[in-house]
Amino acid sequence: MLLENRFEDGFVVTSLEQAINWGRESSLWPMTFGLACCAIEMMATGAGRYDIDRFGAGAFRATPRQADLMIVAGTVNLKMADRVRRLYHQMPDPKFVIAMGACTCGGGPYYKYGYNVAKGVDLVVPVDVYVPGCPPRPEALLEGLMRVQDKVRRMKDLTKGGAEGPPVPARTGAVLLPDELATPEKALAFVTETKERAKPAKA
């Protein structure tokens, strides 16, 4: 970093590897791919309120050949497992998999008696990040996306030796709450007041 700040404004000095990783982590394109109820939550994450596009992962591609990220959202049953594996193999490298929800992390409610459910999508394809929950909240999925981005950031395609050590979390998906919900007491007062206001006016 000897060269940093030696040039006029508008110039940034970085290594080619870092530049590539920066581009890659900021445009992880997920595959349009929902299997069950978690997909609804994934769609909510993609929609305006949570807006996964802020992190560059909003371009849901309708084909595996244009996608970098597979968000396995929902129960993977054995009939579907073959298709999931095939879709994974159709994605170009480098590719990443988020296992979203209890079913994909380990079978979830179908663990004991689900004769038709794969007990975790990690038995079918390699998984990078597990997002537990039934279904996980959109914040949790954003957090999972950021953990994938951490992984991307320390990828070493050009330099020899590969990355050492675990990825360092750089950001969090936690959401700054509005002032009226900041503490439990304030939130309770807010809910009570909203309910009061929602009551029909007495004639």
């Binding site: 054995l78 009939k79 497992a81 073959d82 004769y115 038709n116 794969a118 007990k119 038995l123 079918v124």
Partner: peptide, 28 residues
Amino acid sequence: ILLADDWEGHPLRKDYEFPLEYHGVRCR
């Protein structure tokens, strides 16, 4: 109608035993 065509057994029979693996995916 619901399960794969090459599935073995009928799962809602009380004495049904889960398959050990199906198409390379461990089931138990």
